[in-house]
């Protein structure tokens, strides 16, 4: 069990690694091993979190959440209820107005600006609008996520073909995002999010721009990733998908958690 670090507010058994801890390769390896041993701690914790935008626009109000490692959680709600704000808080794109957020044991409530890249390199993200780099090939898009983390060229040339094969795009590695379909683009995004073997994968409306067949493919991929032990947070308002999953469902309405069911259904 990892001990608390002086000057940092880590929970017992952190899984994500703040940059201040990455002082040596040995320590980094030790922390990863410790992280993998911990099963009891939570992966994502929101304690009384509120987000109020300028003009007193309340996006989230007193959110309390505990998501365990390896869980598959769907966060549902109608448009404008605060689902995307919740994703932004996990990625430190936004900071909470009140409350505390702990990701993988790392208290990111007051995360320093320069620490944000380190957090994001340990979380996989899938967006509704894909967010692929248009001037890079599919291979380069996936490789980019590893390059920013300083991964070696040898490791990159080993991992990238593997993850592109997992999503079934090994034959299109040299194409640009504009040369493939929406469903294929989303699969590239999943491959990119998998490349650095994240502990958490956050998917914000990943099927929003896809037809039903491609949507099913993406959800199957997410389930497969979850089977490997990755915590998956799926934000969606697709009733069919949520009901088919039969996993934990958290329902948000007007910025408030109105229901949290272990094997839930789409309630709204």
């Amino acid at each position: 069990m990892a001990s608390r670090q002086a000057g940092n507010s880590y929970e017992d058994g952190y899984i994500l690694v703040p940059p201040s801890i990455l002082t040596s390769r040995f320590l980094w390896y030790t922390v990863i091993c410790l992280g993998q041993l911990v099963n009891s701690s939570t992966m994502i914790t929101f304690k009384n979190v509120s987000k109020i935008y300028p003009g007193q626009q309340i996006a989230l109000k007193n959110i309390n959440l505990d998501i365990k490692p390896g869980e598959f959680v769907s966060i549902v709600g109608q448009s404008g209820t605060g689902k995307t704000t919740l994703v932004k808080l996990i990625l430190a794109e936004e900071r909470p107005s009140k409350g505390k957020i702990v990701i993988g044991g790392w208290d990111i409530t007051g995360i320093k600006y320069r620490e944000i890249p380190t957090l994001r390199r340990q979380i996989g993200v899938v967006f509704q609008d894909f967010k692929l780099l248009p001037r890079k090939t599919l291979y380069e898009n996936v490789a980019f996520a590893l390059e920013v983390a300083g991964e070696s060229n040898e490791k990159i040339s080993e991992i990238v073909p593997q993850v592109l094969k997992i999503v079934g795009l090994e034959s299109k590695v040299n194409r640009y995002p504009t040369q493939i379909s929406g469903g294929e683009q989303q699969r590239v995004v999943v491959a990119r999010s998998l490349a650095h073997r994240p502990k958490i994968l956050v998917a914000d409306e990943p099927t929003g721009n896809l037809d039903s067949i491609n949507s099913r493919d993406i959800i199957e991929l997410l389930k497969k990733i979850n089977d490997f032990g990755t915590t998956v947070v799926l934000v969606t308002h697709n009733r069919e998908i949520v009901n088919d999953l039969r996993k934990r469902v958290i329902t948000i309405e007007d910025g408030v958690v109105v229901s949290d069911q272990k094997r839930g259904k789409y309630l709204l």
Partner: peptide, 16 residues
Amino acid sequence: RSEISIMKLVGASNWF
């Protein structure tokens, strides 16, 4: 600008 935000979201530092 959107490319820049994507780079940031996949963990690129400002310098990168």
